[in-house]
Amino acid sequence: MDLSPQVQAGLKLLTDLNNSFKTINKAFNTINNPREEPISGCDHYALSTVLVLACKHNYDDQQLHQLLEMYIPNADVVDKIVSKYFIFKNVYTQRNAQFGIALPHVTDANWTLRSDLSSSSYSVSPGNLTFSIELESFNYKTNLKEPAVRFTCTPEELQLLINKLKDIELNCDKHSKVALK
């Protein structure tokens, strides 16, 4: 996992177990209930970030230990963080699902076929066909469809996309049949 320079610098501040104990508890409390325990410092931000990412990437104790060893100079601090992570990992993983960006669930697709009859641009020749495609998702809070992705492509690019989607479907079918056995 690649960490930003700010997170790396914040982790390097966790040098002494006695001084870091409060930060460790605050970081775990932030993940548990972010509204009640706001971020209060560079070290707190860095550790909270690493814990959220470790849950997102499903890190086990050893992976987290190796990551923290690279940035935290004190082995006792690393051991304390990893042991607390091990105890509460399942709880934090479930709560962690609310952090970050979730991919939209596509519920509809709209498309428009366009043709350039004439062009003043050298990059577009007259008569070219393009598809304008919009994938929509449903917002349950507003009960409305919202655009999730918009893109434009040529018929050849659209055919490549369709072929890739068919490959994904075949791959999913194959894996689901193997999983059922």
Rank of each mutant, 00 (worst) to 15 (best):
Q66I: 05
A97I: 12
H65S: 14
M70Y: 00
P73S: 03
A102P: 06
Q98G: 08
V78P: 00
D76P: 01
L64G: 05
Q62D: 14
I81G: 00
K84L: 09
V77P: 03
D79A: 15
E69V: 11
Y71K: 09
P73C: 02
A75I: 13
R95I: 12
D76W: 13
L103S: 15
I87A: 08
N74K: 06
Q63E: 12
Y59Q: 10
N58P: 08
K84Q: 15
K84N: 11
N74F: 09
T93C: 08
P104F: 10
T93Q: 07
N90Y: 02
N58M: 14
V78F: 01
A97P: 11
I87V: 14
N90C: 03
E69P: 00
Q94H: 03
K80M: 11
S83F: 09
K89S: 11
N58Y: 15
D79K: 07
N90H: 03
G100T: 08
V82M: 03
N96I: 10
D79G: 06
C55T: 15
A102G: 08
L67H: 04
L67Q: 03
E69G: 06
K89C: 04
R95E: 01
M70H: 14
F99W: 05
D60Y: 07
F99N: 13
T93N: 06
D79V: 09
K84A: 14
S83D: 15
L67E: 00
Y59S: 15
I101F: 08
I101N: 02
Q94D: 12
V91C: 06
Q62P: 10
F86C: 11
N58A: 11
F99H: 04
I101T: 07
F86W: 11
I87W: 10
I87T: 07
D76E: 06
H57A: 13
I101A: 04
C55Q: 13
K89P: 05
V91I: 13
